[in-house]
Nucleic acid binder design. Structure first.
Lengths: 170, 170
DNA sequence: CAGATTAGTTAGCATAGCTAACTAAATTCC
DNA sequence: GGAATTTAGTTAGCTATGCTAACTAATCTG
């Protein structure tokens, strides 16, 4: 990707690009206080997803629908309320997301014995699209990851395991 | 692409929470193929931000406004177009975000010699709110991070450095 | 100076988030 | 057994964010 050159600019007080990732106070002696790690982690997560989002758009499905669908595809069938919980979203929001997914024939609703609840499952089409989307996303990331030497990639994987623990404690 | 086997979880009887983080194949012999690392990283980033979003709502500012404001506060003044680039968003979108921020007195616009461009700066109020928001966010994360033993937290910090490189290569 | 380019805005559309208020089914309780 | 309560989902209506297309205004180029 080209680094978007602007013709002539009166330097806006410091390169715009520099501030992008370095949204943290000072790059001084790197310490591991929870606060610093938290800050950098938060920033990194934001920028990571912002980049990947671009690929996701190719699916033609909105991010919320995509994420909900992924739960159904990779996590299996569940009710609307459960899906809302999983996505940390209110029931009315999930209701609309589900309606959209159904309209696009990516999921199906089934009745259950409990007449209030509905069981949601991914369709063939939904499953297929999900896998393709994951493939695109992961391809992009994997390409960038491939430039790391194996041992560093291994460190990263190790750290992700820790990160998953941290997230569960959140 | 490695067709990693997924077993469909039969009954979603398990708490919805279970599937939240475990949207990845199997906790089998952990390997470090770019694909697997990419997949887990992507999933972890999504869930991390989803949790932190909750705290962000307390600021009463939307996520896009908050993110744009953070660039101005921590990265310094810049033009609307630059801000749009930084946020990976189209100019019309940024135009509206900026309008909202201005309406809330969190930023100010200034004329430049180039009559087409505007210079955006955070106000006192905007700066204050941003720091408070960052504090809340980071507090939440830091608390979770604090439950890690120091050496693991150090590993994590180390890995974030790698991650930042990866993101730049994205 | 005329035309092309660049910066931002306006209009109009879709998705996603929320709360409040509703319907319908199941459960509780007298 | 039937009324009251609780639970699951939907509908309505608001705001915020994303987009493209089409516009205005300023600058640059030839």
């Amino acid at each position: 990707m080209a680094p978007v050159k602007h013709k002539k600019q009166p330097p806006p007080k410091g390169s715009a690009a520099a501030a992008l990732v370095a949204q943290t106070p000072a790059p001084v002696a790197a310490r591991s206080s929870p606060t610093e790690v938290a800050d950098q982690l938060h920033s990194a997560a934001i920028h990571l997803l912002r980049r990947l989002r671009v690929r996701d758009r190719e699916s033609g499905i909105g991010p919320a629908q995509l994420s909900a669908l992924s739960v159904l595809v990779f996590g299996g069938a569940r009710s609307l309320g459960e899906l809302a919980d999983a996505e940390q979203v209110r029931p009315p929001t999930m209701s609309r997301i589900v309606a959209g997914l159904q309209r696009a024939r990516l999921i199906r609703r089934h009745a259950t014995e409990d007449g209030r609840r509905i069981r949601l499952t991914a369709t063939e089409k939904g499953t297929k699209i999900m896998w393709e989307g994951r493939k695109r996303r992961v391809e992009t990331l994997a390409k960038a990851l491939a430039s790391l030497p194996e041992n560093e990639r291994d460190e990263l994987r190790q750290a992700i395991t820790l990160l998953q623990q941290v997230i569960r404690n959140l």
